[in-house]
Amino acid sequence: MDVRNLDAKLPTDSILTKRKICCTMFVVLGLLTFYACYVGVAVELPPAPAEIDQNKTEVNTLNKASIHRNRTIVLIVAYMRTGSTLTGSLFREYSSAFYVFEPLHMLQQAFSRPADDKVTLKYVNGTTRNYLVSERSEVFLDEINSWLNCKIESLSIQTLTCRHHRVFTKVMMAFFYCSQGHFSASISHVDANLERCLRTAISFCKEAQLLAFKFIRLSMEEASKLLPLYPNMKIIHLVRDPRGIIQSKLKIKAVTTKTFKKDVVTYCSRIEKDLKVSKEIPQKHPKRLKILRYEDLAEKPLETAETLFKFLGLTFEKHLQDFIFQQTHASHKSCKYCTQRKNSSKTSNKWRSHIDHNMAIFIYDTCRTSNVILGYLPLESAQALRNLTIPSRRLVHEV
C-alpha cells in the first residue's frame, strides 16, 4: 500500500487425531533440532546482567544496540485478529530464521496488573528490577533490543517462560522444553543445564540470517524508534477492516456487547495514531515500511507473500510456497487461534454475513479516518453488507 499518499488523507491532528499427530511431529522436530545443537555447538554464554538495585527504576534503553549488517530484521506490527499469526508464520518457516511470537506478551500482562504502581521483573541471575508503570514503553524497547542483539540471557524470566514459545516458534519452543524445571521463584543463579539451554538458543539467534518478531502490543511510535539503530530493519504494518476485527473479537468474547463501544473507540484511536507514524516513516526511512492489508494476503496469498519477501530482499523459497498453500487451502479448518483455513479468502469476508448491521455502521463511522486511508468502504445498507459481490474495499497501489 502506498504510504506516500497518507499525508493528504490524514487529519493533521478422524481429524482430531491428525491434528494431534501433526502437533506432536512439530514438537519432536523442534526438540531434535535443538538437541543437535545442544551436543554439537559450544558457544560462550555472555555474562549475566550485573547486580541490580532492587529499587532502581531507571531504564537504559536504545543506547547499546549493535548493528547486524549481514542479516535482515523484520518487525510485524499488528493488532489482535488481523491475521498476524499467519503473517508471522511465513517468516518462521524461512530456512534461516529466528522468529519470536509476541515477545511482549508477558510484559504487557505485568504492566496491566501492577502492585502499588510498580512492576517487578526477575532475571536468570537472581536479580530483580522494579519499574514504574509509566516506564512501560522503555521496558518494552529494552527487551526488544535484547532480542535483536541475541542477549537472551538478559531477558526477564517472565518473557523466557512465556507459554507462547511452546506453540508458535521453533527455536524458542525447544528452549521452552529444554529449560523446564530450571526456573523457580527463588532462582539465584544460572545452573549448568539452564546455561546450555541459553547457549543453544543464543547460537541459533546469532547464526540466523533473518530475525523476525510479531507484535500486537507494540505501537508504531515505539517500533519507529528502533529504525535509526538498525539500518537493516524493516517494518510490516499489518491492518484489517475494523469490522472484521471486532466481529472476530466478539466471536471469541474478547469484546462483549457491554464493552463494544469502548473497545471500538480504543482500537480506532490506536490505529489512527499508528497511521500517522506510518505516514512519517517513509520520509525519514525510505523503503523500510510496508502496509499490508490482511485481506490481500487472504485473497492472494502466494502473490502477496512473494511481494513481502521481495520487500525484505529475501528469496521466496519453494517450501514457503508449499507451506502457504497448505495454510490457506487446508482440508479442514483449525482452531480459532491457528492459521490453517479451508479457504482463506472466504474467511476474510465471513464477518459480513454475521455482524450486526448497526454495529458495522458504528465501527465504520468511528474508524472513518483510517478506513478512508486504507480503502475500506462503508457498505451503508444491510443489503450491501450481506452481498459479497459488492467489494468492501477499494484497490490501492502497492509501495
Rank of each mutant, 00 (worst) to 15 (best):
K262T: 05
V133F: 02
L211S: 12
N55W: 09
R341K: 15
T256Q: 11
T389M: 06
S381C: 03
T82S: 03
L292Q: 12
L226A: 02
L141D: 04
H354W: 09
L16E: 09
D296M: 02
Y230H: 13
H319D: 01
Y337P: 12
L148D: 09
K333T: 13
C162N: 15
E195M: 05
A298S: 15
D263N: 14
F98N: 01
I15W: 13
P231G: 11
V171M: 04
T159F: 03
K290D: 03
L121N: 04
L395M: 07
T128Q: 15
Q327H: 08
R71W: 09
N70C: 02
A208K: 10
P47K: 14
L121Q: 02
Q326Y: 13
K234S: 13
L132N: 15
F101I: 05
V171C: 01
I157C: 05
F325C: 04
E272M: 05
V100T: 06
C268K: 04
H329S: 01
S278V: 07
A185E: 15
D53L: 03
R19K: 07
A212M: 03
L31R: 14
A212C: 09
T328P: 00
D7H: 14
E51L: 10
L312G: 06
E207F: 09
K56I: 06
F111L: 08
S188K: 15
